[in-house]
């Protein structure tokens, strides 16, 4: 509880400053709406926002799940099949320098306007942190325990399931947390590509109407959504990681 108090106070303080500034300076509200304006816009748009938020949440969770699955699969394959890691890993890193926004139109050309290209966008931004973190964790199990396992007759499968995999979990969760945040970002970009509903779609419409207040509402929803998914991952981590490893964040 104590931990939450200082940041909460900071946010409240900033909001008050913001409110005061907009009131005193008399800045146009279509340029910079006050927190009060934003709140009013939120209340006004509640019902519409609910549908859009639901759509974005669904897309995000689906994409996140697919991205994580892909990331884990890539990590395990690169770890287990000798030689593949050296051949593929550098390419994987280079591939991350291609901005997702740049590939997105191409995906639409290939996959049309359905859910497929949107999922691919999210998978593209999510799988990398998961794959890299997990791969790193798999390769870093304690040497003394590894020696002990070998001398006690552990085979390759046992080494993987009993040592490397559990040892990689803390690293994997670090990757999952990054991917959780990226997944919302990916979903918004995916919706910009063209979609019927979703917060991303809503933002495009509001941008054309110069409704800064509603854009702020959309941003706030994105932040809350990202925090919620992050929280879910954190919860899963707490439930999964036992022993000393749980102390790391």
């Amino acid at each position: 509880m104590r931990r939450w108090l200082p940041p909460t106070l900071t946010v409240v303080g900033l909001l008050i400053l913001w409110q005061v500034y907009t009131t005193v300076s008399g800045i146009e509200s279509w340029l910079l709406p006050s927190p009060k304006d934003i709140w009013d816009a939120f209340v006004d748009q509640r019902d519409v926002l609910a549908t859009h938020t639901l759509a974005t949440t669904e897309l995000t969770l689906l994409g996140f799940a697919a991205g994580v699955a892909t990331g884990l699969l890539v990590a395990v394959l690169l770890h287990l099949i000798p030689g593949v890691r050296a051949a593929v890993y550098p390419l994987l890193v280079i591939s991350q320098n291609v901005p997702t926004i740049a590939i997105a139109p191409l995906l639409v050309v290939w996959l049309g306007f359905g859910i497929a290209p949107k999922l691919v966008v999210i998978v593209l931004v999510c799988f990398f942190p998961v794959a890299v973190a997990t791969l790193d964790g798999l390769g870093r199990s304690d040497a003394a325990i590894n020696d002990y396992m070998l001398m006690s007759g552990a085979n390759r499968r046992q080494l993987f399931t009993k040592l490397q995999w559990p040892a990689a979990l803390p690293a994997m969760f670090s990757g999952l947390k990054i991917a959780a945040t990226y997944s919302v970002l990916g979903a918004i970009i995916a919706e910009w590509l063209g979609s019927e509903e979703g917060i991303g779609r809503y933002m495009i419409a509001q941008k054309s109407a110069f409704r800064a207040d509603r854009l702020f509402v959309a941003i706030a929803i994105i932040v809350v959504l990202a925090l919620a998914i992050f929280g879910l991952v954190r919860l899963a981590e707490k439930l999964t990681i036992r022993g000393r490893a749980s102390g790391r964040s």
Partner: peptide, 30 residues
């Protein structure tokens, strides 16, 4: 490998396993 009961110089326990589950590790491998 797998012919001896071995206690390494550093305990080399698995931090994510409970004590009882650490104790049974070698049996489990068998």
């Amino acid at each position: 490998r797998g012919l001896i009961g071995y206690m390494p110089q550093a305990p080399a326990l698995m931090p994510w396993r409970t004590i009882e589950d650490n104790v049974v590790l070698a049996r489990e491998l068998g």
